[in-house]
């Protein structure tokens, strides 16, 4: 039975190899990400696949592909899963490999849920470096931003995951230890002011340095992103972040089908899985198309300002150059691209 399982899988994946390596001396140029690192593709890759098949069979990874009675859909899903499992780090993928994995993910969603999602792999634009400013005189603690963020980014509803935290400070100090981010009353409360924190997309991000597998990195436009499929879930980045910017999927995240935002980005709001890290991406699926992040759009007070730091005509530049701004924990040398200011 055991060997039969293995055989099944190899049979399923075999035709794909021949497709990919068609014709010229098996260059395997368009093979997926796993090859990009292994360099000598076909034989070693399939050898490892076969080997790992045995190892993984026990974990139920191949459940659907093993069953003799499994239908075509199940088989296709298993094959897609298989290719997904062996793909490489997104950061190192070629454009074709990115397209291929996006297609697989969309296909897997269609097979699993019957609907259609759009996963973008849009890259960083030239001459763009995103920056964010937060007006602490304006924020009233309405939490509209949090609401919008959760809906936009498909965060787990079961654990109520939120990227943004709004801290309520009593006037007269700015000590986070004395602040309350758990308030339960009408806002704004008299004698208090509010301040939001989230991932600050540091120019010198400590989370990126510590990741043992390069699953998180800073994109050219300054957004710190995570490859959810490459993350091994060690949570070292979470320990390294001084801003509480990162969230972990302690169990399988769940978003009701009718609440799922289907406009997605590979590095942004596409559904995550159990045991991986996630965080604010400045709504990469929105910002890379010129739109404001959901929190900026939702804020009724205009306390949130987002834009291109490299554009001298942008509002974010005007804020930095004309208001008295500060950043949190600047002494740590993380260089956040998230400024606070007052009227």
């Amino acid at each position: 039975m055991f060997f039969k399982k293995k055989k099944n899988v190899n049979e399923e994946t075999a035709p794909q190899h021949t497709e990919k390596c068609g014709g010229d001396s098996c260059g395997c140029q368009q093979a997926d990400g796993f090859d990009q690192v292994i360099k000598k593709p076909l034989d070693r890759r399939s050898a490892l696949k076969g080997l790992t098949a045995g190892l993984l069979a026990g974990t139920g990874f191949l459940n659907s592909s093993c069953s003799v009675t499994a239908g075509d859909t199940d088989k296709e899903l298993a094959s897609l899963k298989w290719d997904e499992y062996f793909k490489g780090n997104y950061q190192l993928m070629t454009a074709e490999e990115k397209k291929a994995t996006v297609a697989r993910l969309e296909k897997m969603y269609a097979l699993n849920n019957g609907g259609k999602i759009n996963i973008s792999d849009k890259g960083a634009a030239k001459d763009v470096l995103y920056g964010y400013a937060f007006n602490i005189s304006k924020c009233q603690g309405y939490m509209d931003c949090v609401n919008a963020c959760v809906e936009e980014n498909n965060q787990d509803r079961d654990s109520q995951m939120q990227y943004i935290r709004i801290h309520e400070f009593k006037k007269g100090q700015m000590n986070f230890e004395m602040a309350d981010d758990n308030f339960y009353h009408e806002v704004p409360a008299a004698g208090h002011f509010y301040m939001g924190t989230q991932c600050f997309h540091c120019e010198n991000p400590p989370c990126v340095d510590v990741c043992p597998v390069k699953a998180t990195w800073k994109e050219k436009d300054g957004i710190v992103v995570i490859d959810y499929d490459w993350c091994i879930g060690c949570r070292y980045c979470q320990a390294a972040c001084p801003y509480d910017g990162r969230r972990f999927n302690w169990s399988t995240p769940h978003v009701p089908e009718n609440e799922l935002n289907k406009d997605q980005h590979y590095l942004g709001n596409r559904p995550r899985k159990k045991g991986v890290m996630e965080k604010c991406t400045f709504c990469i699926q929105r910002s890379r198309s010129g739109e404001n992040p959901a929190c900026v759009e939702a804020c009724p007070t205009g306390a949130r300002i987002f834009g291109n730091l490299l554009d001298p005509n942008s509002t974010i530049r005007w804020v930095i150059e004309n208001k008295k701004v500060f950043r949190l924990k600047e002494d740590l040398g993380t260089e956040p691209k998230f400024w606070y200011f007052m009227d």
């Binding site: 400013a133 007006n135 304006k138 910002s287 198309s289 010129g290 739109e291 404001n292 900026v296 759009e297 804020c299 007070t301 205009g302 300002i305 987002f306 834009g307 291109n308 005509n313 942008s314 509002t315 974010i316 005007w318 804020v319 004309n322 208001k323 200011f341 009227d343």
Partner: peptide, 16 residues
């Protein structure tokens, strides 16, 4: 502040 961009709210997108 509004003309500069520090006050008020930009709608739509950050891009021009």
């Amino acid at each position: 502040d509004w003309v500069g961009g520090a006050h008020g709210k930009i709608i739509g997108g950050w891009a021009p």
